[in-house]
Design a protein around this nucleic acid. Structure first.
Lengths: 131, 131
DNA sequence: TCCCATCTTTACGTTCGCGTAAACTTTCCC
DNA sequence: GGGAAAGTTTACGCGAACGTAAAGATGGGA
């Protein structure tokens, strides 16, 4: 895996479409360099894309993810900007903690429902074989 | 809270709109009774709505949620139907378990980023007060 | 040099999950 | 009995996150 990748290589590596990558760029979530007209993606772009896809799996909107990505940018933010970025980041963190907690209960619930349904299924099946 | 509720009472209780409730019904996720033209929601409807909203928070589509809700219906499913329902339910469960695990890492990550950003912020602030 | 593969922009199309009128019944209650 | 309130259906609209088709630029290799 070379330091710099074309759009095709990115798509293969992350299982996304070129359209999606250009779309994320148009929404200012990634900023690949250009050689002529062509886009070139480096390590930083890949790191950002990893975070984008993870955020999507958690159900965050691209705009929420964009705000989170600001947190990872070292440079040029002033106090008020950084402070606002931190505020929204703390909200996302709360979302994630809540989600994590609620998932535990939901997993237990669903497991029980599956167990019960499996019992019903095997009852049905044995009905057939013993009937 | 009475046994049977009107659409308005449901909306107030669950913080959803009438449009959303009718939409879920059109997608066959809930089946309120009718008194004349009006819809009436009972305990079973409320239980289903609770699961619907929970599923939404986990990022599931209404169609995925509808399939999950089939698991909670006691009656009229035959073997093949129940077996298929179980298969998709196990997939959802896997989704949730994966999500739960991934959330732990992401939470740790985000906490660290927030900590670092807080450090940068207080550095900036003390720069100002000490400069 | 020419051609094909790969990239590009532009722009309209699509699915999901509702929002939002518009026009009509139905019901409540005084 | 007579409104106003609350409910109903029908249908068009909308934002998010891309899909997809069209048409042009570019670069590489026989």
């Amino acid at each position: 895996m070379s330091e710099i990748m074309t759009i095709r290589q990115m798509c293969a590596a992350f299982d996304v479409t070129p359209r999606a990558l250009r779309f994320y760029e148009s929404k200012e979530l990634i900023f690949p360099e250009r050689r002529g007209q062509h886009r070139l993606y480096d390590r930083r772009d890949r790191a950002r894309l990893t975070l984008i896809l993870r955020g999507k799996r958690f159900g965050f909107s691209l705009e929420q993810i964009r705000q989170l990505l600001e947190l990872y940018e070292p440079g040029g933010t002033n106090r008020t900007q950084l402070s606002a970025t931190l505020d929204t980041a703390r909200e996302r963190l709360n979302d994630m903690v809540r989600q994590h907690a609620e998932l535990e209960g939901a997993i237990v619930d669903l497991r029980q429902q599956i167990d019960e349904a499996e019992a019903r299924l095997s009852a049905l099946t044995s009905d057939k074989t013993t009937g």
